[in-house]
Structures are given as structure tokens and as C-alpha cells.
Design a protein around this nucleic acid. Structure first.
Length: 803
RNA sequence: GCGGGUGUGGCGGAAUUGGCAGACGCGCUAGACUUAGGAUCUAGUGGUAGUACCGUGGGGGUUCAAGUCCCUUCACCCGCACCA
């Protein structure tokens, strides 16, 4: 028997798969389809990380199994190639980002192909390809035409190092997600996406899909829906009311002051009446200078000051109350003004303590001298006139009805979700296909002028004044208005990286279409994506953005489904051997190329699937890799004990059927580790048995094939089975054969296992009792004891309680 | 602070409805074969003081029976963070 030469054999089969187009999805729309998708990678300069193959292999297993089950499978791959790291690298090394991207993709693709992943490479896409981003631009124009893309003066998160604006989602702990620099506020004129219009649908339609629960919860938390009321407070001497948002209208009688945000417009409007206006402006500037991080840090200590000259009237008890300015009230949420109920809101309580404001108890049940009582489950209303004695929920309804009937307020739903800042002042992104005409305003390019190509520039370095590098290209910027033909200027900001990834899964269905982003037939056939796997870090960014675009395209009649992804799962990270995150600086990075070279792709694939719970982070283990290689060596040596007999032998039949069942089920439910352990166990039985039939060997190879496609293909060929293994049928199990007639059950004495007995699975109480009591050990245990009770659970346990 | 999650051998991890805790793999120990072994094979491997007892973060409870259910408590991880 020749040795298991993984290098030679893996290349051989990869070449054959490629030449025969083995994994190309068919355009035969009459077959039952299956669309499996993994998040396409950003082709970074570092090359593939051992974390990448984990999800790719997991869905490769599903894709390969589905093909064997007769489905027409689409399992595509592409490149999310716009983005900052490439641009930064290009600037540093004076190479055009396009060249850098090409090089990186070449490397990534070679690495992925060496893993034997069954991607349909004929459908490869690249977000930086003009034929692709033509449609990204086209979608942008549709959004613009429907008023969902708009330009706005907006204080954005600005990274002084990247010289670029960031979306809220890209700011982590007040620092830039990419480079870690502290983010500052900067007011800029930005393109925005009205994702907030879809807030309700983005929450509600989670009911239509099968996502792992934590993804749904995170999305809901991020959108942050809250139900409450807007209530009008009269300001002394003004006709305009001061409107607040509250989720606790029931505590209205406990309001002892109001707080408005330092940016609240009333301050500007009524500055004549405000005696300490200068002081307030100084406070506003002080707050504005604080970074997000400082704001968070300082949350322990409330700051602010009273607005002299303005006071408000509580609409339910006509009490006059002071108005304060404080930056704990945000202009960007609700109305930028709150009614303060220090007795029942922690922040108001802290503020009231600091400024020695009265604290009134309106919900009995807590101790408001020590802390605000915020519980809404227990407690009843006091000091609240007609609400007294009611439970909180009842009081909410009563006060709402009252306020609405008196036109003092109205019900209101608020969301934490903000509109999506869509502009980037960077070169390496999709140009925004709009021009600004002095006469006609912002005008979209006609479709015939798409794609609007990213021009070659002399220098693509970001500018210090915060403008895109494209702004320097006057010959490109100056153009004519598509509407009136007059002089106009192009938008010079580019789109964020999230743009290209918000719809890429649509393009895979019909990659070469130049009439539409994909044909309606292709979309109708392939959508929705049956199984989408990706990282948890994309739950609030990519997943939300792409669902938003998809919903928009659904309303435009472009796509046939409300939701893009039917099922979403998520994988855990692979950590370094020392349990820390893999990074160059920690020196614990494992390069997949080295593993493929030394042990083979099949070993790497098995290892990454066997390493642990797919959803959890796990440390890398070189010894674990070796163990998986040993397993494949033993699989290879099965040749030595294979005989020519057909069918399953009596000794192994039950185990084979059980293993088919376990592996089939586990592959469907993210339990790749136990599927592999089941195959290892079967292999152990095979070797213990000393001989296996052709059919036992065949079944084993078929089960292993999705995980270890190369070695199984080779052994299939060596055994002279007809065809290729990837064309075979997935094995089926006979349920009746998985059930043993005689089983071993534990026998307990007073709840402790003292012996085991072999017993017919369907044995009745009397029969079981006879078998159990003839067991020597048990006889010893029950000797001289009184049997109090006997419990027999067929197939499980026999318990004798003695005294 | 809020939301979500996790605690099981030396390590990664298994354990349908409560029903033999530790599958499978690593590591370790002994032996075999070897000039040699980081190869392969065989046997063993939760702890302890060897027929027993103790063991699933800690404490309490329900039950004939608890890793699994209930109460309580601790530790760690992830996400959000003044969202009224």
C-alpha cells in the first residue's frame, strides 16, 4: 500500500474539480435549489488566517452534503475589496490600490483553493470591479430617488488619523474601530441613509427568519425600540411649548424639574429671556469638546446648570418647575428635552442630589432616599391625584388617556437606531453617482452613464481639510448637469465599505448580467439564501444594512423576498495556542498554508471542525492537528482490512446505521465536532473488528467526504468504485437498524449505580425485575435490606430503593 | 448599570424528555516493535488511602434519580452604554 501523500493527492483532485466544473451551480431552475453563503472576505495583505476556514468549511460541508442529496447548490465566493487598509497600504508603499487589491485577491484565492472548498469560482465577484459597482451605484440612485439618501449637516465621528468620518457602528469605546485613534466630533455635510424609516420592519420581520437567538436579540437591542409619550410643558411667558419624551408618563406627578440638551434650539430662540445665556454657551462648548469616551467616563458625575429666566409648568398639577441644561440629555434622541423624575429615574436622581432638587415619591415600594425606585413590576401610585392606588401599568394607560384627551401629549415610539452616515472622504470606494448643479440641485447620473468610474488620481492621500482626494481632480469633478446641461460638480465623497457588501449575495445569482443587478428569474429561483454564516461582529453592521437595502429593493420590486437570509448562524473565533487573540504582535499567528503543507487540507478541515463547539471561541492546538492527521492515516489504512463482501456485516450493521444518522443530523445543526467524533468511533469499531466490507468502507467514505473531500475521493478511486465520490448519493439509514434489541442499562440501589445488566429493550417490569435480581452484585446489595420502592424506566434505568 | 452567554478531568470538549458524568481527541503512564523514534501498535488514565467514598464554580432545595429543574451566590467572557 502506498503511503498517504496528502500533497500530491490534494492537488490532483483540486485540479480535476476545477477542470470539470464539479461545483458549478446549474442554471436549470427546475431542480430544487440550495443557496449556502458565507461572508465574503476582505482580501487583506496578511493573507488568509486560520479563522477563515472555520466557517467556510462548515458551510462547505453543508453544500457538499446537499449536492449529494440531489440539490442544485449555489456556494459562491467573492471579494469585499474596497476599504481603508488597502488604501493605507497603497499610500505607504506608493502602489495603486487596484494593484494591491489584485495581488491580495490572487493570494487569497490560491489559499482558498488549496483548502478544497467547493466554491463555484465561475461566479466570483469583486466589489471594486466596475461591472459590479455599477449596480452598487444604481441601487444608491434608487435610494436617492426615493428620498432615502439625503445630505445633511451632521456632527459626525471623525477619526483624525484615518482622516475620515465614521458611522456610529464603527466607533468602539470612543475610538476608531480600525486604528484605535480617539474619535472627535466634526460637523460635516454628509450623505445619510434613512435606515430609521425601516426600524419597525427590521425588528418585526425577524419573526420571518430563522436566526440564532443572540443575533435577533442584538439586532433588537441595537434598533432599541421604546414605547412612550411625548408631553407638552408650558414655558412661562411663551406660546411655544417645551415637548419631552418619556416612557414613564405615570410618574408625571413626580416631575420636579426639566432638563434640556445643551444644543436645544429653545436656548437660541429665547436667548433674550435667558439671564445666564453666556454661561450656558460656555457649557455647551465644554460639552461639545468632550469626546464620546470622556462623556462615558464622566457619566458618574452629572454636570449642568439652571436656565435663569425660563421656567415650566407641570401640565397635570400646574406646579412651576425650573429648567436645567445638562449633557446627559442628548439632542439626538427623543425631543432633546426631558421631564425629570428623580424619585424614579437613576440619572435624574443623581442630578437632583447634586443640585439639591426636591425628590418626590410617586410610586411606593422603594426607598427613594437611597436610590431611585425604577421597578415597574411592583409598587403602586401615590402622591399622584387620580392615579393613586393604581399599579404602574394601569397608571400608564390612565395618564395616557388623560393627556391625549386634553391634547397635552401623544403616544410615541422612539428608536435608538440613527440614520446611516454614508459618505467617506476617501479614495478607495465607490464614487457616489450624483452631480450638484447650481440650478437643479443634486442630480443622479442617468443609468447610461453608469458605472461612474473611479478616476485615476495623482495622489489618493486623504486631505487635511477633510475633503476626499477626488476633490483635487478638477477635470473629473467639473461636469455637466444631466438635467439642464449646465455646469455642475460631481460629488467627491465615496461610499463606505458596507455598500458593496449590502447586496453582493444578489449578484452571485447572475454575475454577468449587464442589464440588471441580476435577472428576476435568477433572483426568484435562488432567493432567499437558505443558510448564511458569518461573524458576530457583523450582527449590527453588515446584517442590518443589508437587510435594510434588501427591504428597499423588495419594495421597488427588484427582489422577490422581504428578507435576504432565511437562516443565520455564527461561528466563534480561533484564538492563539495561549488562549489570546491571534495577532502578529503576540507572535501566536498560525498560517493555514503551513498546516496544508505539512498535514494537508483535509487535516486542517477536520481539525477546524473537530476543535470544539462551532459557535464558541477555541484556542488553537498543534497537538490537536496531529491527532486529526492520525485519524486520516488510520482511514487510509482501512484499505488493509477491507474485504470484497457486499452489504453490512452483522457485527457492524447497527453501528453503521447509527453513525449515518448521527452524522447526517449533526451536520445540519452546527455539531460538526460530534459528527466527527462519531466517525472516529466508527473507525475504532472497524479496526477492532479487523475486517470491513466494501459497503461499510463506501458508507464511511461518503460520510467523511464533506469534511475530508480529497482523501475520500482518492480512496473511492482506489477501491475502483464507479464515478467520483462527489457525484454519489448521500447514504441513508434504516431507523429500525439503529435500535438495539438488547441494551445495557444501569441498576441503581437508592439512586447510586451499582451494576449494569443486559436486558431486552422492550422488557416489561416483571422480566426486568427478574434479570436485575439475578445479578450477583445486586443480590449482595439488597441482602438484609427492605425494598421500599422499585422504579423501572424501560431503556433507561432500574432503581431499587432500600432501607 | 443594562442585555446576552459560559463555568464539567492536566487540555479541547461529550452527555434526547431529569435516567450509567467524562463519548471523541489531545496529553500523560506502562509495554511491544525498533540502531533510533516527535512513527506505529497494545493496555491504562476524574480524584483519593484499591471491593468504598468524593466528584459538573459555591451554598441550599425538589426528586427514587439533578451537569440538566427551582432558589441563592461567585467568577469570567461578549455586546451596548446617560437612549429619558
Amino acid at each position: 500500500m502506498e503511503a498517504y501523500n496528502h500533497g500530491k493527492l490534494e492537488k490532483k483532485w483540486q485540479k480535476l474539480w476545477e477542470e470539470t466544473g464539479a461545483f458549478h451551480a446549474s442554471d436549470d431552475y427546475t431542480k430544487e435549489k440550495y443557496y449556502a453563503l458565507i461572508e465574503f472576505p476582505y482580501p487583506s495583505g496578511q493573507g488568509l488566517h486560520v479563522g477563515h476556514p472555520r466557517p467556510y468549511t462548515a458551510l462547505d460541508i453543508v453544500a457538499r452534503k446537499r449536492r449529494m442529496e440531489g440539490f442544485n447548490v449555489l456556494y459562491p465566493m467573492g471579494w469585499d475589496a474596497f476599504g481603508l487598509p488597502t488604501e493605507n497600504y497603497a499610500i505607504k508603499n506608493k502602489i495603486h490600490p487596484r494593484i494591491v487589491t489584485e495581488q491580495n485577491i490572487k493570494r487569497f484565492k490560491g489559499q482558498l483553493q488549496s483548502l478544497g472548498l467547493s466554491f463555484d469560482w465561475s461566479r466570483e465577484i469583486n466589489t471594486t470591479d466596475p461591472n459590479y459597482y455599477k449596480w452598487t451605484q444604481w441601487i444608491f440612485i434608487q435610494l436617492f430617488n426615493k428620498g432615502l439618501a439625503y445630505k445633511k449637516e451632521f456632527p459626525i465621528n471623525w477619526c483624525p488619523d484615518c482622516k475620515c468620518g465614521l458611522a456610529n457602528e464603527e466607533v468602539v469605546n470612543g475610538a476608531c474601530e480600525r486604528c484605535g485613534t480617539e474619535v472627535v466630533r466634526k460637523v460635516k455635510n454628509q450623505w445619510m441613509m434613512r435606515i430609521t424609516d425601516y426600524a419597525e420592519k427590521l425588528i418585526k420581520d425577524l419573526d420571518l427568519v430563522d436566526y440564532i437567538e443572540k443575533v435577533k436579540i442584538q439586532q433588537k437591542n441595537w434598533i432599541g425600540r421604546s414605547e412612550g409619550m411625548e408631553v407638552d410643558f408650558t414655558v412661562q411667558g411663551l406660546t411655544d411649548k417645551l415637548r419631552v419624551y418619556t416612557t414613564r408618563p405615570d410618574t408625571l406627578f413626580g416631575v420636579t424639574y426639566m432638563v434640556i440638551s445643551p444644543e436645544h434650539p429653545i436656548l437660541e430662540q429665547e436667548k433674550a429671556k435667558i439671564n445666564n445665556y453666556e454661561e450656558i454657551i460656555a457649557y455647551r462648548e465644554f460639552s461639545a469638546k468632550k469626546s464620546d469616551f470622556e462623556r462615558t467616563e464622566m457619566s458618574k458625575e452629572k454636570t449642568g446648570l439652571i436656565v435663569h429666566g425660563l421656567s415650566a409648568i407641570n401640565p397635570v398639577n400646574s406646579q412651576e418647575i425650573p429648567i436645567f441644561v445638562s449633557d446627559y440629555v442628548l439632542m439626538s434622541y427623543g425631543t432633546g428635552a426631558i421631564m425629570a423624575v428623580p424619585g424614579h429615574d437613576t440619572r435624574d436622581w443623581e442630578f437632583a442630589k447634586k443640585f439639591q432638587l426636591p425628590i418626590v415619591e410617586v410610586v411606593a415600594g422603594g426607598n427613594i432616599a437611597d436610590a431611585a425606585f425604577t421597578d415597574i413590576e411592583t409598587g403602586s401610585m401615590i402622591n399622584s391625584d387620580f392615579l393613586n392606588g393604581m399599579e404602574v401599568t394601569a397608571a400608564k394607560t390612565a395618564i395616557s388617556d388623560y393627556l391625549i384627551s386634553k391634547s397635552l401629549g401623544e403616544s410615541k415610539i422612539n428608536y435608538k437606531l440613527r440614520d446611516w452616515v454614508f459618505s467617506r472622504q476617501r479614495y478607495w470606494g465607490e464614487p457616489i453617482p450624483l452631480v450638484l448643479c447650481k440650478k437643479c440641485g443634486w442630480q443622479p447620473l442617468p443609468e447610461s452613464q453608469l458605472p461612474l468610474l473611479l478616476p485615476d488620481v495623482e495622489s489618493y492621500e486623504p486631505t487635511d481639510n477633510g475633503e476626499s482626494p477626488l476633490a483635487k481632480m478638477t477635470s473629473w469633478v467639473n461636469t455637466t448637469c444631466p438635467k439642464c446641461g449646465g455646469a455642475a460638480a460631481r460629488e467627491t465623497d465615496t461610499m463606505p465599505q458596507w455598500a458593496g457588501s449590502s447586496w453582493y449575495f444578489l449578484r452571485y445569482t447572475d454575475v454577468n448580467n449587464d442589464q440588471a443587478l441580476a435577472s428576476p428569474e435568477a433572483l426568484a429561483y435562488w432567493l432567499p439564501i437558505d443558510w448564511y454564516n458569518g461573524g458576530m461582529e457583523h450582527t449590527t453592521l453588515h446584517l442590518l444594512y443589508s437587510r435594510f437595502w434588501h427591504k428597499f429593493l423588495y419594495e421597488c420590486g427588484v427582489v422577490p423576498t422581504q428578507e435576504p437570509y432565511q437562516k443565520r448562524t455564527s461561528h466563534g473565533m480561533i484564538m492563539g495556542e495561549n488562549g489570546e487573540k491571534m495577532s502578529k504582535s503576540r507572535g501566536n499567528v498560525v498560517n493555514p498554508d503551513d498546516i496544508v503543507e505539512e498535514f494537508g487540507a483535509d487535516t486542517l478541515r477536520i481539525y477546524e471542525m473537530f476543535i470544539g463547539d462551532f459557535e464558541k471561541s477555541v484556542p488553537w492546538s498543534m497537538n490537536g492537528v496531529k491527532g486529526c492527521r492520525r485519524f486520516l492515516d488510520r482511514v487510509w489504512r482501512l484499505q488493509e482490512i477491507a474485504n470484497k463482501n457486499k452489504g453490512y456485516s452483522k457485527e457492524l450493521e447497527a453501528s453503521v446505521h447509527k453513525t449515518i444518522k448521527k452524522v447526517s443530523n449533526d451536520f445540519e445543526s452546527l455539531k460538526y465536532n460530534t459528527a466527527i467524533s462519531a466517525m472516529m468511533s466508527l473507525l475504532n469499531e472497524f479496526t477492532d473488528n479487523g475486517s470491513i466490507t466494501t459497503d461499510e468502507f463506501k458508507t464511511f467514505l461518503l460520510l467523511l467526504n464533506p469534511v475530508a473531500p480529497h482523501i475520500t475521493e482518492e480512496l473511492w478511486e482506489k477501491l475502483a468504485h464507479p464515478g467520483y465520490i462527489f457525484q454519489q448519493q448521500w447514504p441513508v439509514w434504516d431507523e429500525s437498524k439503529t435500535i438495539d434489541d438488547v441494551i445495557e442499562i444501569g441498576v441503581q440501589i437508592s439512586g447510586k449505580v451499582r451494576s449494569t445488566v443486559l436486558i431486552p429493550r422492550i422488557a416489561k417490569q416483571a422480566e426486568a425485575e427478574k434479570i436485575v435480581k439475578s445479578d450477583e452484585k445486586i443480590q449482595e446489595w439488597i441482602k438484609d435490606k427492605t425494598i421500599v420502592k422499585e422504579i423501572y424506566v424501560p431503556g433507561k434505568i432500574y432503581n431499587i430503593v432500600v432501607k
